[in-house]
Design a protein around this nucleic acid. Structure first.
Lengths: 238, 238
DNA sequence: GCCACGCTTCGGTCATGGCCGAAGCATCGG
DNA sequence: CCGATGCTTCGGCCATGACCGAAGCGTGGC
């Protein structure tokens, strides 16, 4: 008989994710922002009391972190590892029935640019990844990736210090299957830093109540000049 | 409101995994071998009819594949992607409460060498990974990995052809957190090929009804000569 | 042909847990 | 201090689904 304890612990976590309301909550938190309990209740599609119970269980199961702030309670995913699991489950589910939602109206903005937990996804993220690869700054092989020496210098110049924080076991350069593009985009610590830095520089802005991202004027210039992305790629869908 | 359909599909898969009996089944299948329904019933700790129902749902959910063979039905994991998810869920669960089972009696053999779905895990797998890294045959950075040109030549000589099957999107060289060693070992396509080739060469043997592996005499010589692993590393625990 | 074996289908029982409304605490604003 | 807001706890309802035993269908062996 194999060790059943492991099976049990797997089941506990999976059961936590395996409820529609809870997975809606988690999915909403994949946007990367911390959200309040009431916002999450809205996303989950259930009442406030029910949501409260779900959130308590998620926090207890270490999938979600809670932070009090005045009379609000902010919730966010506990770690990038959680986001990776959710992403993996999503891909697994997508592999089954070919559920290809044609082209939603507001999906357009999402397909163009959005956050994927803590990094960028969508058309521009895929273009960015391609460009970095072509220039030899990163090497992508299957789903793994490495930053080249040229790459390290380049990212240092862009304001991303890759050396100084090796404290986490989180992959530096990971790729993530883009559901809209069916191509790989950049994730991991590098992907997160790129998004953070792009926001700092005012190149992209998050759109309220959505995971979609907006590329600013400065961003159009910046992404074109620094990363060599065609500017028509950067304009919002019409 | 965010797209709730994605949350739902995540929930469906997670709920499938999130039952104790089913996750015991999946955990047993992580050994990499195809098992019969009755064997799985034993692993799951439930009756045959109940197991049958669970298996039907797992097959329906595309997590498990079934193959008839005479009056037996053999089940196995549908893809390495499924194994990766299970492994991820296990790590996530382990991260919570520090459940460090001291040293089981039969755990000893498992800690020494075992299969982790389709590749090796345990002390010798970690040693193997270290050795390959030291010799510059692979480069591991965080959790991603690359095979160097030297590495490609080396593996070709060992009988592993890395070039000819780029048909799957499966990572070539992936690492996987070893629960017993708390270190990384080699997974992905390369890890799978290494195990397969080692079995072909008669270096390791699977132990009946277990995920544990036994290193043969030929294996002691082979691993030492080819990979430079200290032979005391290869002897079974006393 | 028969029985043994492996697995599935059926019918019925039972517990888990998701859900809500009402009420209870906090915190903030006036 | 009082009401409004945000969130949680409580009690009770109800559906889902996990489980087993008995019986049904294949397949293989004698």
């Amino acid at each position: 008989m194999t060790n059943q304890a492991t099976g049990l612990s797997i089941a506990t976590v999976a059961a936590l994710i395996g409820d529609v309301a809870r997975s809606n909550i988690l999915h909403a938190l994949m946007g990367g922002k911390a959200l309040t309990a009431t916002e999450l209740a809205h996303h989950a599609g259930v009442s406030a009391p029910t949501t409260s119970g779900h959130l308590a269980r998620l926090v207890d199961g270490k999938l979600v972190l809670m932070e009090k702030q005045g009379r609000h309670r902010y919730f966010r995913l506990a770690s990038p590892a959680v986001a990776e699991i959710l992403e993996g489950l999503g891909n697994l589910a997508a592999a089954g029935p070919a559920r290809h939602r044609p082209t939603g109206p507001k999906d357009l903005a999402m397909r163009h640019a959005r956050t994927c937990y803590d990094h960028m996804a969508g058309r521009i993220a895929v273009a960015l990844t391609d460009s970095l690869t072509e220039r030899g700054l990163i090497i992508i092989e299957d789903r793994s990736g490495l930053v080249t020496d040229d790459g390290r210098r380049f990212f240092a110049g862009f304001g991303i210090d890759l050396e100084s924080k090796p404290r986490t076991a989180r992959p530096l350069c990971r790729t993530c299957l883009d559901w809209s593009e069916r191509r790989m985009h950049l994730g991991g610590r590098l992907g997160a830093s790129l998004l953070a830095r792009s926001i700092e520089r005012g190149w992209v802005r998050t759109i309220r109540d959505s995971r979609a991202l907006e590329v600013t004027r400065a961003g159009e210039r910046g992404f074109t000049e620094t990363f060599g992305i065609a500017s028509e790629m950067l304009r919002p869908p019409r």
